[in-house]
Design a protein around this nucleic acid. Sequence first.
DNA 1: CTTTGCATTAACAAAATTGTTAGACATAAT
DNA 2: ATTATGTCTAACAATTTTGTTAATGCAAAG
Lengths: 208, 208
Amino acid sequence: MENKEQPSKEQLILAAAEYEFLTKGYDGARTTSIASAAGVTHAMLHYYFRTKEQLFERIVDEKFRTVSHAMFNIMGDPSLPIMERIKCGIETHFDFIAQNPLLPRFVINEIITRPERYEVLHKRLESFVKNVFKSLQDEIDQEAALGKIEKIDIKMLFISIMSLNTFTFVAYPFIEPLMGELMVDREQFLSSRKAENVEIIIRRIKKQ
Amino acid sequence: MENKEQPSKEQLILAAAEYEFLTKGYDGARTTSIASAAGVTHAMLHYYFRTKEQLFERIVDEKFRTVSHAMFNIMGDPSLPIMERIKCGIETHFDFIAQNPLLPRFVINEIITRPERYEVLHKRLESFVKNVFKSLQDEIDQEAALGKIEKIDIKMLFISIMSLNTFTFVAYPFIEPLMGELMVDREQFLSSRKAENVEIIIRRIKKQ
DNA sequence: CTTTGCATTAACAAAATTGTTAGACATAAT
DNA sequence: ATTATGTCTAACAATTTTGTTAATGCAAAG
């Protein structure tokens, strides 16, 4: 019977594997290390998942689903006015990355080393993203024609938002030591960083 | 004697190792694969560099030096007016990343898996960066006091610039398939992306 | 032409990592 | 009580990857 207080060995292994793969990547991860972190013998790991590869697939599947799911929320509520919608999208995206700080590097490294696996995720996102881009671009073009905002390519805007929201987390260990007191209070920093990213994008769009 | 047309085995190995390590990371790299890419037996690799670790050190050293050297150029010419200086710094940084597109991911992964090695690079950059930040901040504060530009924390600006310039290259395989025609002509895309990044930062600083 | 020293290879050895198996053990069904 | 089933372990096996060595070649110095 499923007990919430006593996770099964299988769940323990999955949790340990997730952390190991996300921090060290496929090549850096060790099945023995995963097993011992999960508190089981490494034969156990092979018993449940047969191979390292299959265990990895489980993690990749789940993480790709997480990303895919997040993309749907990030695009913002179409009923909001465009400025509000973009602002809300940025904040949702930022919060998602903040809660999954290891994910971007993992996904990127994974896609680079095994591009074929990305096709599944890409296919799932492709038409959705294209549609949202198109509707956002139409709305932007309309507002721009009225002189209310700058005319801008939504794809460029998208790249900018992704860059601003993601890079801090990916490069955290690189920049943190260079930042002095700025990043010592993590909560404080993240909140002002989020506001900054919104500000940057709003200013980019606002008519001058 | 050193011949420019016939690189030595040692140089061949170093070149192959650089590519292997930059694309696959330390864990993913194989000494046999490096050797065969260099067209030598793998015993040869061990003859010249003894261990994978030592070969890797050579590459890391060189790449960290490259980054360190780049940082000095990126901070811009102090004799220029602040706007020009920042614009020029952004462009220099962008061009550097464009010419070393594999470097950011390598450096980040390397720092995450072996933070102790970063201390050498960090120490070299620390005081320089702090000084440049301070002089830039002073200049910004002066201009802001005159109402010419927005008051802004240079460190925040620095993170924004790094993010915008770097993320595209790090996440290239992730975003490229989502971008339709935008990125098909790479040269064209990079040039407009560079201009966009400058535009974004300038708008962030300009007084509204 | 012989010695010296570095470059090179092939074959081998060691280590690390992944994967398997036979059997033990518990638990629940028959 | 016996059987069946899934869980688990310890020991072992296979594979992959790294590292070594002894022997060979080769070119320059003496």
